[in-house]
Every structure is written in structure tokens, then in C-alpha cells.
Write a protein that binds this DNA or RNA. Structure first.
Length: 601
RNA sequence: GCCGAGGUAGCUCAGUGGCAGAGCAGGGGACUCAUAAGCCCUUGGUCGGGAGUUCAAAUCUCCCCCUCGGCACCA
């Protein structure tokens, strides 16, 4: 049965480059899951984009003396370049700075307001008269009113460790050099999460059978012990989405990024549908109770995706479509699963951009192949707990597992066959295959179910491990049947062995494909196939009412005649092959110290 | 501080009441198609510490230690 699946990945923030921890946390698991479901013939839409608004982006722009749009776009375009090189196949990678996203976000705000889930409240904030703006607490420092430490942040003192009340800070000053500060009253909107608490609990309970324990701990169990409190959803800020109310004083306020960025899960499919020229196509993923939505993200974002975003959706209810499309009784669906990952450390220390203790995505791909990076990030994915990127381990796993077990298997069989059967699959009568041949093929065939079950449950490490075990089974089979000996005395027997091994490899190619798309595609071509396993990525410039933005897109391959590639090989005896070559590169041990030498500099 | 997740072999990690496991690393062996790859055999553990429940605990309960995340207008 064909399923309809939304693969939603957390929105990268436009204030830092993307590193391996971000990749293994969300983009890569999302891509593996999307590719697997596409191979199965499911209807997949994978989306996200750059979270472009907020104070830090504006502060960076001030510091650089550049327009804020230029700053967000330089990160945005770097992200797109990375996703193309790494093969992260977004059907649409867009930005929150688009006319469409503004409209959808504002409609969501109005829907929540109409349904009574918003309220206004005044609070005191530090204001810079000279700069003419309010400053977030993290940008204000002064003397701690508890211990007297002079470098305290207004919300926390790093010296005594106490959480501070910002308005009590002594001698406040702006870290940004905005001159003297004064306290001013400011009014903001709050999302009344306490009213939605019963619905959020019910939502999480209904999914507790398949959600990860780490995710339920951060959401359901936490709400049960602490409850949900209202959260402010607007800010005093120039850069962002205007609050949709016509009242004096609100022109300078914007929707808070944590309120609006998650709305991108809804706005991006809408933009995708417009770009496809099928305006209503997004509804299949959003107003279709049978669709399943999966959210990929790191543990720091669990609250916003497992609690706040579902609360926004439930609070808006059918009212969103009333504001957005003038339509009644069209409620939006809720996420199916939030398979959040933990964090990846680097050489036993926390990844830190400011100390350059990081392996940056674009940089690492200048020296290593994308599938090698994808492999290491998948076998080491922090699904249950924090994991560690270790360069010695990276080299070892590349050489011992990827090159030796899988790459060598494909290469030894294909090249042996190419040499002894003149570039063709041995022309065996498949009804004469021996019990050992049929047994191997049955083992491999069963893999489509066992590996598929792991992938369905988003246990990606386990799925890849199971696939690697099957590659080992083929190596074992070869050892027992030794076609290199048989070819001299019993070429017919050797032909059966090689045919069987080729057919097994042809199947394994598909099972490895979600994880290793580039090399699987290459292997696919060695088998003489003129089709492709996957489609292609491309970029496009979109112009709308507020400007232009670049988007990354994905054009799916047509699967004429066969709705699914996720099935055992039907390799034809006698089929023409193409000249094979090794799929992966063995790495020198010197790489370990070279790469470690780059860290922290 | 409060809440949550984690601590198992040298390394990376599976394992939710029934003889402590896998891969890699270390040691030994037979083979030669292959990127000196693959295959077979093998050494290795106080399951963070302590107490308890049980015929039986890595697993359940309590206390403690360590790592990470959340909670504060960072995103």
C-alpha cells in the first residue's frame, strides 16, 4: 500500500555554518528515511529551509556592516551547496524570509488569536535610546546584584551561577555598544500553552507506542511533572515577520522565530505546491488523515517540535484554513513521530563553532567522498545517546567496513565475472541453482523485510548494520564456494556461484542505497542499467512580493513499469555489464593526525 | 536547583528478570577472485558505585557519583 509521508527537518539557523553534528542530527536521517520511502514507491515530500530571522542574524549584520538580507543569504546559499554535495534530497529547501511564509505564519497567528489561545502582557525590557531598540537579555551585561561580579549577563551570572531577574541588574550596558540603557515597558503576545496542555498530553500519549523514550521524556513525562506555561511569541525587532494587527506601537514588533520557524513545516509544502504548478497538492500531506509526518531534529529542539508545534496546530484547528483559504472544516493533521537524535561530540569534546572545534560540512567534503561521510555519520548516529566523531574511528570504519566488507565484495565479484564471462552475467539456467545458492538468495531476500522494518521504525544504525551483515553473508558464501578454484575445473558451477553472488549484490545495492546513494547509483550503472535509482537536485531563484530567494529542489526519477525498487533483484542471465571499478577509497592512516591538527585553530 | 536521557570489553555500541553480546582493535590459522581485501578460530568485562527485592538483576526499587540536554526573552 502506498503511503504519504512528510519528512520535515528542523530549520537550520542563519547564523553559523552546518557541521557534522547538525548533519547526523537531522538532515542525514531525514534524507535516508526519504530516500528509502521513495524507493518503496511511497509518496514523499521532504522539506525545510533556512531560519532566517531573529536577533542574532541582525546583530551579525550590524557587526559586519552589511544588510541583514545579505548576511542570511550567504549562510542560506552555503547550506544549499552543502546539501547538494552531500545528497540531502529536499523536495524543497527554502527560507522563512518569503512572502508565502509570512502569510502562512500570520494566518496561524490569527487562527490562534480567534480561538482564544493568545493573550497580551506587558513586561520590562532594557532599551537603548541611542540605538532606538530593545535588547534581548543575552546582549545586556552588568554587575550581578547577588555576588557583585561585573561581567554578569542580565539573565544569568556566570560567576555565582544564579539565574537573575534582568531588571535588577546593576550598571547595565549593551554588549553591542548601543550606549546607555533604560528599562521600558513593552507589550507582547503570549501563546497560552497551559490551556492546550490536555490536548498536548493526549497527542503525545496517542503516539507513545512508537516515539523514542528520549523524546517522551523531554515532552510527555516532563509536562506531567511540570506542566506547560504560556510563552511569549513576539519580539521588539526590525528583522522578521510583522505581527498582523493594525494598532499603533505594533509596527516595530515581529513574530518570535520559535513561533514562526516551525510554521515552515506547513508553509514549505504550500510553496512547493505553487512551484510545482499544482497549488493544492500540499493538502495531501496536511489535510489528509492518512498522511504521516516525521520530524527530524536534535535533542535541543524536542520541546518545540513535540510540544509547542503540535500545540500551535491544535490551537489553530480549522481556523487556519478559514484565514488562509476561506475554507471551513479543514483541520490540519498532527505529526506522527518526532525521531529526535541526541548530540554528536568531536574527539570527546563538545562541538564548538567559536573555538573551531568542529568538522564543518562543506569543508570535510572537499577532502572526503559524500558516501564515506554519510556512512560514518550513520553507523555513529546518536539515536539513543550522545556519540563521538573520532578521526581514527572514521578511518578504521571506512577502511574495515565500507571498503573491505562491502566495496571489496562488489568489486571482487563484478571484476571476476567481467574477466571470465566477457563482460556479461553468466548465462545460467536459473532452475538449476543449487540449495546453497537458493539459501543465500533467500537470506538476502528476507533482508528487504528485516532492513525495511528497521527503516520504517527509524532505527537507521540498526538498518545499516543489518545490511552490512548481509554483505558478510555473501563473502562467506563466496569463501565456501570458491569460484576462483571452480572456474578452472567446473566453469558451470563457478557460473552458478557468480550469478548468485551478483544477484545478491544487485539486491544489496538497493538496501544500501538510502545510506550510500552516490556509490549505489554507480554500482547500478556497472550492472548495465540505463535507469537511475534516484532523481536529481537542482536550484531555482524564486521572486515574490518581498524579494528573491534561492531554493533547492529535487526532481524524482520516473519509475515506469515498476512502482518500487525496494525488492529483490531480478537479474537476467546473460545481461551485459559495464566495466566495474572500486566504489570506495581506502584512507591513509596519516589522515587521522592531519585532521586532528585542524581542530581548535 | 528542578526535570529528562545516558554510564555495558581497549574503542564504538546492542542488550527491560533466566548461562554477559556484536563490530573494530589484539592473538592464531587456512585461502588467493578482490582496494594485502575476504573467510575460520580465539584473548578480553566488578554491566558507574553502594544497598535492597527475587530461586534468579545489566534489567526492578532506593541512595550516591559522572556526562549531556531542557527550564531563564540564545536559537
Amino acid at each position: 500500500m502506498t503511503e504519504t509521508i512528510l519528512v520535515a527537518v528542523a530549520w537550520p539557523y542563519a547564523n553559523a555554518e552546518i557541521h557534522v553534528g547538525n548533519i547526523t542530527g537531522s538532515h542525514l536521517p531525514g534524507d535516508i528515511f526519504a530516500r528509502y520511502n521513495r524507493l518503496k514507491g511511497n509518496k514523499v515530500l521532504m522539506i525545510t529551509g533556512t531560519d532566517s530571522h531573529g536577533t542574532p542574524v541582525m546583530m551579525s549584520a550590524d557587526k559586519l556592516g552589511k544588510p541583514v538580507e545579505e548576511v542570511y543569504k550567504s549562510y542560506h546559499e552555503g547550506f544549499i551547496e552543502l546539501f547538494q554535495k552531500l545528497g540531502i534530497t529536499y523536495d524543497l529547501y527554502t527560507t522563512t524570509h518569503s512572502d508565502n511564509h509570512f502569510k502562512v505564519s500570520q494566518a496561524m497567528f490569527l487562527a490562534l488569536q480567534k480561538n482564544g489561545y493568545l493573550f497580551r502582557q506587558f513586561s520590562k525590557q532594557w532599551y537603548s535610546p541611542s540605538a532606538g531598540r530593545f535588547l534581548p537579555d543575552r546582549y545586556v551585561e552588568g554587575t550581578c546584584y547577588i555576588c557583585g561580579f561585573e561581567g554578569a549577563r542580565s539573565d544569568q551570572c556566570d560567576n555565582c551561577g544564579n539565574v537573575l531577574e534582568p531588571e535588577k541588574l546593576k550598571n547595565p550596558r549593551a554588549k553591542t555598544g548601543d550606549g546607555a540603557l533604560e528599562l521600558r515597558d513593552t507589550e507582547h503576545f503570549y501563546l497560552d500553552l497551559s490551556k492546550l496542555e490536555p490536548e498536548v498530553k493526549k497527542f503525545l500519549q496517542s503516539r507513545s507506542d512508537h516515539m523514542r523514550d528520549t523524546v517522551l521524556g523531554e515532552s510527555l513525562r516532563k509536562i506531567e511533572s511540570e506542566g506547560l506555561k504560556p510563552r511569549s511569541i513576539t519580539r521588539d525587532l526590525e528583522w522578521g515577520i510583522p505581527v498582523p494587527i493594525n494598532e499603533p506601537g505594533w509596527e516595530t514588533k515581529k513574530l518570535y522565530v520559535w513561533f514562526e520557524a516551525v510554521i515552515g513545516y506547513l508553509s514549505a509544502p504550500i510553496e512547493w505546491a505553487q512551484l510545482e504548478g499544482q497549488k493544492e497538492a500540499w493538502r495531501d500531506w496536511w489535510i489528509n488523515p492518512a498522511a504521516k509526518q516525521f520530524h527530524f531534529l536534535g535533542k535541543d529542539n524536542i520541546f518545540f517540535h513535540a510540544s509547542q508545534w503540535p500545540a500551535e496546530l491544535m490551537g489553530a484547528g480549522s481556523a487556519f484554513m478559514e484565514f488562509f483559504a476561506g475554507e471551513r472544516n479543514a483541520p490540519l493533521i498532527l505529526p506522527y513521530d518526532v525521531p529526535a537524535n541526541q548530540f554528536m561530540n568531536l574527539e570527546s569534546q563538545k562541538i564548538s563553532g567559536s573555538r573551531n572545534w568542529a568538522v564543518w560540512g562543506r569543508d570535510v567534503l572537499t577532502r572526503f567522498d559524500p558516501d564515506a561521510v554519510r556512512y560514518y555519520l550513520t553507523v555513529n548516529m546518536p539515536e539513543a545517546k550522545d556519540s563521538d566523531w573520532d578521526w581514527a574511528d572514521f578511518v578504521a570504519r571506512n577502511n574495515n567496513e565500507l571498503v573491505a566488507t562491502w566495496g571489496n565484495l562488489a568489486n571482487r565479484v563484478l571484476s571476476f565475472c567481467y574477466k571470465h564471462w566477457e563482460g556479461h552475467v553468466p548465462d545460467v539456467d536459473t532452475t538449476t541453482l543449487r540449495p546453497a545458492d537458493l539459501e543465500l538468495l533467500a537470506t538476502i531476500e528476507a533482508g528487504f523485510n528485516t532492513v525495511g522494518a528497521e527503516l520504517d521504525a527509524v532505527r537507521l544504525r540498526s538498518a545499516l548494520g543489518e545490511t552490512m551483515k548481509l554483505a558478510t553473508a555473501v563473502n562467506q558464501y563466496l569463501d565456501v564456494n570458491a569460484p576462483w578454484s571452480a572456474v578452472k575445473t567446473d566453469k558451470d558451477g563457478a557460473a552458478k556461484t557468480i550469478y548468485t553472488a551478483l544477484k545478491a549484490i544487485d539486491s544489496l545495492k538497493v538496501m544500501f542505497a538510502p545510506f550510500l546513494p552516490f556509490t549505489s547509483e554507480r554500482l547500478h550503472s556497472f550492472f548495465g542499467c540505463e535507469t537511475h535509482l534516484f532523481g536529481e537536485q537542482y536550484t531555482e531563484e524564486v521572486t515574490d512580493a518581498i524579494g528573491t530567494h534561492k531554493v533547492l529542489r529535487y526532481r524524482e526519477v520516473s519509475r515506469t513499469g515498476s512502482p518500487t525498487y525496494w525488492k529483490p533483484s531480478d537479474l537476467k542471465p546473460g545481461q551485459k555489464l559495464n566495466q566495474p571499478a572500486p566504489l570506495f577509497k581506502k584512507l591513509e592512516l596519516a589522515v587521522i593526525e592531519e585532521e586532528r591538527g585542524r581542530l581548535g585553530k
